[in-house]
Nucleic acid binder design. Structure first.
Lengths: 309, 309
DNA sequence: CTGTTAGCGCCTTCAA
DNA sequence: TTGAAGGCGCTAACAG
C-alpha cells in the first residue's frame, strides 16, 4: 500500500501535522480550555492536573486560563473571546459562574463541563455538597457540639449551584434539625484560603467566644482556623473542634478531620465526559444531572467532644 | 478611515480572528508551552500560575503539559513532537532535563526558558541554589548542629544544573567547612514530596539515630520529616531540627524554618524573558547566565540548638 | 481504496 | 494608505 509507506516515512522523518492547518481545514482544534480561579490552590491544582492528563492521554491539548476571582470585589471577567475558535470544549474547575458568565461561555458554541460546581443542565462532576456538609455536621453534632460556626466563601447570590451555598445550607439545616437556633454571626467568609480562614475564625470567635466547633468549607480555611486558634491560645480539639472539606495532602500533618474527596479523579472524569460530548457532536448531555463522586469523613485529631462547662 | 470603521464593526460584532488561520498564514501561534512535572506541587503550581498570568497579560496562550516524572523509574519522556508547530516558545518549570531531552526541545526550533532549573546557556530564572543550601546549613551549623542529614531528589547524573545536585553539594560543602566528615548514609532521596520526605527521614534515622538535624531540599519533604519525627515520638525542635526550602503557604502552620523563595515571580519573569526572545526573533539570550531571584531564611519553630548529650 | 480538488481564514507581498 | 492576490498545510468531498 502507498499509505503504509507514507506513514512509515512520516514516522521516520518525525513528521507532525500542522495543528493550525488541520484546525483551519477541519474546524476542530483538539484543544480544551481549562478555566480555573488559580492553579495554586489544592482543589483546583488537582482537578486541573487530572483533567490535563486525561486530555493528553487521547491527544488533546489543554489551554490554561486562570482568573483572579477575589483580587478585587468585582466578579472575574471570564472573557470568552479569548477562547473563540480556539477550543473544542471548555472545562470549568471550581469557578462558580454567574448566569451571564455561563451564558457567555455557552455563546462559544462548544460543549462545556464543570467540575466541583455547575448547573445540572451541563456536564457536571462533583461531590454531593449537601451530603458533604451534613456528613461533617453529623460528626460534630454526634460529638455533642451545638454551637458550631461556619467558614464559607464569598456569596454572590448570582451563582447557581455553588458548593459554597449548598454547604452553608447543609450546615444550617443540620444545626436546625438538632434543635439549634442558628445565629447569623456564626458564619464568616474565608475565601477558601489559609489567610481568609484565619481571619474568619478570629471574627467568629470575637463575635461569639462560646462556639465550640467550626465547619469550614475547605481544608485550607480549616487550617487557617487552626492558626487562629493558636493565635488565641486555644487548644485543638480540647477548646475548639475543626472539620474541613477536601482531603488536602497536609491534613495528616495538621491532624485535621476532613471530608475527603478526589479532585483529580473528578477533573479526569469531567474531561472524559467532555470528550464524549465532542465526539458525539453534541453540546448538552442527553441525560442530565451531575455525576456525583464519592467522599468520606476521615477523623483525625482536630475534633473531639466539646469541653463540659 | 475605512480601517477605523472596520475595527469598530469588528468590536461590535465580537469578531475574533481565527487563531488557526492566523498562525497558518504567519507561522506564529501566540502560544507558549508550559512543561512541568505536575501542577499539584507547591513550587510548580506557583511557577505555572505566575507564568500563565504574565502570558495572558500580553495575549499569549498557555498550553499546559505535565509529566509523570517519578511514576516509574524511567525518565520522563518529554515528547517534543506534541509541541511541534504548536508553540512559539517553551517554558520549563522545575523539570531538570537530561542532555537528550534538552536537545530534543531545542530541536523544536523555538526559544526555551527555564524556571527553577536549567543550563545557563538558556534563559534561566531561579534562586542561587548553592547560596540557598549554604544559608540553610549556616543556620543549622550556627545553632551547633554537626550531624546533619540531607533529604534530596532523585539523582540522575544525567541532569545538569539540577537544584537537587547543587543543594546537596552545598550541604556537603558546608558540613565539610565546619570540620565534619560527611557520611554517605546521611543522604536520602525524598522525591520532593511529603510521602517521600517521610520515608527518607525514617531511613536517615534508622541508619544513624544520632543525627540532630535535617536539611530538606523542599518544604514538602521537610514536612514529611515532621511526620516521621512524630511517628517516632521525636519532638521538634528539641530532638530534631528541620529546615526546608520554598516558603510553602503552610510553613507557618507547621512552624517550619525555611529558605523562602517566590516561584510565582520566577515563573512570571521567565515568561517575560521568553516573550522578549520571541519578539526579538532570537532563540538564545545575548548575555547568558541565570537570572537569580532573591531568597531569605525564615526562622520558625522547627530549628533550635541540638540537645546536649 | 486511491487520487484529485476546492476551500478553510488569514498574513504578506506587491501594485496601484 | 489601500486593495488584490497568492499561498500557508491541511481536510473533506468527490471522482475514478
Amino acid at each position: 500500500m502507498t499509505r503504509l509507506r507514507v506513514e512509515e516515512a512520516a514516522e521516520r522523518l518525525h513528521y507532525i501535522v500542522s495543528p493550525s492547518a488541520a484546525s483551519l481545514a477541519s474546524g476542530r482544534t483538539r484543544t480544551i480550555g481549562l478555566l480555573t480561579p488559580s492553579v495554586n490552590k489544592w482543589f483546583f491544582a488537582n482537578a486541573i492536573d487530572g483533567a490535563e492528563r486525561a486530555l493528553r492521554a487521547v491527544g488533546f491539548d489543554a489551554l490554561l486560563y486562570t482568573f483572579n476571582v477575589d483580587e478585587d470585589l468585582r466578579r472575574p471577567v471570564v472573557d470568552p473571546d479569548v477562547l473563540r475558535r480556539r477550543v473544542d470544549g471548555v472545562l470549568v474547575a471550581g469557578l462558580p459562574l454567574s448566569q451571564e458568565e455561563a451564558a457567555s461561555l455557552e455563546a462559544l458554541g462548544v460543549p462545556l463541563a464543570f467540575v466541583g460546581t455547575g448547573r445540572d443542565a451541563h456536564v457536571t462532576v462533583r461531590v454531593d455538597d449537601d451530603a458533604v456538609g451534613r456528613c461533617a455536621m453529623a460528626h460534630l453534632i454526634g460529638l455533642g457540639h451545638r454551637r458550631v460556626g461556619h467558614m464559607t466563601g464569598v456569596e454572590d447570590g448570582d451563582h447557581f449551584w455553588s458548593p459554597t451555598a449548598v454547604r452553608r445550607a447543609a450546615w444550617a439545616a443540620a444545626l436546625g434539625e438538632a434543635g439549634v437556633v442558628v445565629e447569623e454571626r456564626w458564619v464568616a467568609v474565608g475565601d477558601y484560603d489559609l489567610a481568609g480562614g484565619r481571619r474568619a475564625a478570629h471574627r467568629l470567635l470575637d463575635d461569639d467566644p462560646t462556639l465550640t466547633a467550626f465547619f469550614a468549607a475547605s481544608d485550607e480555611m480549616a487550617m487557617g482556623a487552626v492558626l487562629a486558634a493558636r493565635d488565641r491560645g486555644l487548644r485543638i480539639p480540647e477548646d475548639l473542634s475543626i472539620v474541613g472539606v477536601d482531603g488536602h495532602d497536609l491534613d495528616e500533618l495538621v491532624q485535621l478531620t476532613s471530608v475527603v474527596q478526589d479532585p483529580g479523579a473528578q477533573g479526569a472524569a469531567a474531561a472524559r465526559l467532555l470528550l464524549g460530548l465532542i465526539a458525539a457532536g453534541q453540546r448538552w448531555p442527553h441525560h442530565g444531572g451531575p455525576v456525583l463522586h464519592p467522599f468520606r469523613l476521615v477523623e483525625r485529631g482536630s475534633t473531639a467532644p466539646p469541653r463540659p462547662y
